[in-house]
């Protein structure tokens, strides 16, 4: 938990620039499987705490909306895609390693 908070603080400091870009994230899940649920919780927390007010999150269930997953060539789920700001980043798994995700989300 401390690690998480440190990562958040670090990220905030590193990202302290005059212009804050909007983050567009897409999380692909497989219905209500346990990993998918954990992925939703983790990503949502990440958006609320580290990317507050600058995050546009969509959560796509590949069973109910498979056509939305096709364009992104999703191989396995859960998968989180950072569409903006570029470059595009892809993360696979239940997103429990939020530190690694936050580091990778850093645009620089």
């Amino acid at each position: 938990m401390d690690e998480f908070k440190n990562a958040v603080h670090h990220f905030k400091s590193a990202a302290a620039s005059p212009v804050k870009e909007k983050y567009v994230l897409q999380l692909y899940i497989a219905g209500s499987t346990p990993r998918s649920q954990r992925a939703v919780i983790n990503v949502r927390r990440l958006c609320q705490e580290a990317l507050k007010d600058i995050c546009d999150l969509q959560v796509i269930d590949i069973f109910q909306q498979p056509h939305l997953a096709k364009d992104e060539q999703i191989l396995a789920v859960p998968t989180l895609i950072k569409k903006l700001p570029i470059p595009k980043r892809i993360f696979i798994g239940d997103m429990s390693d939020t530190t690694a995700i936050l580091d990778s989300l850093d645009p620089c």
Binding site: A30, T33, R35, I62, F63, P66, K70, A76, I92, G93
Partner: peptide, 23 residues
């Protein structure tokens, strides 16, 4: 991706071909 698959960290694969999408 390979690491995640090998370690069972994924639930499903999405396979798309010309005809349809399968999970």
């Amino acid at each position: 991706t390979l690491h995640a698959i090998k370690n069972g960290e994924v639930d499903a694969f999405l396979v798309s071909n010309k005809l349809d999408d399968q999970v």
